[in-house]
Simulated assay, not measured.
Amino acid sequence: MRAAITGLRGVSVQGDSMREVWRNLPEETPVALVFNGTTAAVMMASPQDIEDFAFGFALTEGFIDTLDQVDSFEVVAHEAGIEARFWITEARAKAMQARRRNMLGPVGCGLCGIDSLEQAIRPLPRLVAAGPRLTRAEVARATDALRAHQPLHDQTHAVHAAGFLLPGQGIVLAREDVGRHNALDKLIGAMVRGGVEAGAGAIVLTSRVSVEMVQKTVMAGCPVLIAVSAPTAHALRLALDAGLTLAAFARGGGFDLYTHPDRIQTGACDAA
Rank of each mutant, 00 (worst) to 15 (best):
L184P: 04
H153C: 02
E176V: 05
D154V: 00
I188C: 03
H153G: 07
V139M: 02
V139K: 02
R141F: 05
T206W: 12
H149Q: 11
A137W: 08
R180E: 14
G168Y: 10
D177I: 03
L166V: 15
G201Q: 03
E138V: 06
A198S: 14
H181G: 04
L166F: 14
L184Y: 06
H160Y: 15
V139D: 00
A145Y: 05
R147T: 10
A174D: 11
V204R: 05
G179A: 00
E197F: 01
R147Y: 00
V139A: 01
D154T: 00
V178W: 02
E176G: 01
T206I: 12
G170Y: 12
D177Q: 02
L165A: 11
V204I: 06
A174W: 05
L205H: 11
E138M: 09
A190K: 04
N182S: 12
A162S: 15
V159N: 08
A158C: 15
A162W: 13
L205S: 06
D144N: 09
D185L: 01
A161R: 11
E138P: 02
G194P: 05
A142N: 09
I203Y: 09
G189T: 07
T206F: 10
P167H: 12
E138D: 01
V196L: 15
A202H: 01
T143W: 01
Q150L: 00
L205M: 15
V178K: 02
V139T: 03
T135M: 08
A190T: 09
L165H: 15
L166S: 14
